[in-house]
Write a protein that binds this DNA or RNA. Structure first.
Lengths: 295, 295
DNA sequence: CATTGTATTTCATCATGACAGAATACAAGC
DNA sequence: GCTTGTATTCTGTCATGATGAAATACAATG
């Protein structure tokens, strides 16, 4: 075994996390069985993860005695480079269509040819795009892209939908926000404001933005709210990876987010909800200024 | 070719529909090419559909001249018996789990064995169940059912989510309702009230109920509202196919729906929206009476 | 006796090929 | 020239087998 599996990398990360949470020290012994039980997985992939950690010099195997902790690592040092393989194809295909690299109607084999993908992958990607209503199956064979004429309308519908949900989500009875989450978000926003803006920052900015809204949706305690917002984020990911509104809009966005965080930290949810409403209303108008709706 | 394909049956239905819409009479000729163009499909499946209609005695082929209409059928006489093959498995598997016929954790092959399904079908079904958050992939192999402890909470969350969306959907700027849809819904509801209630009516009642809410969501003109409600209906389909609240609740439900239809027919959308809010609030409390929440 | 090491079984994914149906092109008939 | 008839090509689904990884059972060791 050379390259650790996706699962093994995940487990390695989670093991490091557990080590930190349990406050273990150098020299302590880890136990394959209990790790497997806590991670809800069999011993086999746990061993793979431990071998990976061994190569990184974090643990050392003591035959028949346990796995000794050599160094306490930070979680970041293990993080796998690849996130979700399919996700990248989703974004790439959607973009290629927008930039007219792909025809409106297309077959699965055509995509296989163009991108050198195998059929299962293409099918997964297409069915995910279909969930997002970006493509649909044609009656006979093939698929058809749905975006095109409806793009500007979609934008408005998306914001009106979020206006129904996000402010109300904050008022859900089960709403509960970790203070560590708030702190983390504050830090990320502050860093974004301090760092000079570059073209390459747009993806990171988008993801922070998405994480903010998704985190609040998750905190609502209402899984349907959460699912709906995750869905929205995934959709917006296609069209907004290339941020074209300049840094001043980034500043406004971060300020508004941080204001909400302030009130949420004090559990002033009614105010936060109102701020969210205004935030979304403002954001929805941004496009109209730069790219006015012909309607 | 013996049995018409799924696609061919669909096309047969749509051809009948077109015949009715166009007001064609017995003796008129149909044209394969134009049908294929209108149905956005090649001639091949159209021919299959026409052969199907020929066997049913609705058309007759006139070689090299056209396809003659022998009888004007009602759309219902063609309707295929099978709706969506996967859908049935979805419902069945979800129910089998609820009634403890299936273990909490299960592998794909286990499902293949139990139901005699092939792997692609199992994978489609499982991934759809995963979209509905009824199952999730275990870290290693296999799947895990998520329902169980969370069922009562899910019920409340679902209604609160719908309360955010459905009343607002009626107020969407793009809202537009076909008057034929209103009439059709009125008729269905009236029939439900007149006909004696039987156990077997519960599925039909559920589907009418779902069609009402989904139709209004579609009318909102906001595709995200529509998608979200479709999603909710699919979810409720699993737990509510067996209606256990008696006929009096059916009566209340139909009356409330019909009241909304009255106002919608007069385009009194604000009132309809308010009625929808109250309707959902009442419906959400029904369970609490018959099956009180332990929390 | 608890722990790791090893072997076996089970599982899911991928690759390949067969097959049925849809798309396309061309021929034939009125 | 427009229509259906026929043949060919293309596409997607299903079936099968190979492969690598996870789950499980058992052995070995301190």
């Amino acid at each position: 075994m050379q390259q650790p599996t996706r699962l093994q990398q995940d487990l390695a990360e989670r093991i490091v996390q557990l080590v930190n949470e349990d406050g273990l020290a150098v020299g302590d012994l880890l136990n394959e069985n209990s790790l497997a039980r806590r991670l809800e997985v069999s011993r086999t992939p746990v061993r793979g993860a431990l071998q990976h950690l061994e190569r990184l010099g974090i643990v050392a195997r003591r035959p028949n005695r346990g796995v000794e902790l050599i160094a306490i690592p930070r979680a970041e040092s293990i993080t796998a480079p690849t996130a979700d393989a399919d996700e990248d194809w989703l974004v790439r295909i959607a973009r290629d269509h927008r930039t007219a690299g792909l025809p409106q109607d297309i077959s699965e084999v055509e995509i296989m040819r163009r991108y050198g993908l195998n059929r299962p992958t293409v099918q997964r990607v297409l069915s995910r795009l279909a969930d997002l209503e970006m493509v649909e199956r044609k009656p006979g064979y093939g698929w058809r892209f749905l975006t095109g004429t409806r793009d500007t309308a979609t934008h408005d519908e998306s914001y009106r939908f979020r206006l129904m949900i996000e402010p109300m989500g904050i008022l859900e009875p089960g709403f509960r926000l970790e203070s560590s989450w708030i702190e983390n978000m504050r830090r990320l926003h502050a860093e974004t404001l301090e760092r000079p803006w570059q073209e390459s920052s747009s993806v990171a900015f988008f993801e922070m933005n998405a994480a903010f809204h998704e985190g609040l949706a998750a905190a609502s305690g209402n899984r349907f709210v959460h699912t709906a917002i995750r869905h929205q984020n995934q959709l917006r990911r296609f069209s907004q990876y290339d941020w074209k509104f300049g840094f001043e809009r980034v500043v406004v966005n971060c300020r508004e987010h941080m204001e909400m965080l302030d009130y949420l930290a004090r559990d002033e949810r009614e105010i936060a909800s109102l701020l969210m409403r205004r935030h979304l209303e403002r954001a929805s108008q941004v496009r109209s200024r730069t790219d006015p709706d012909p309607g």
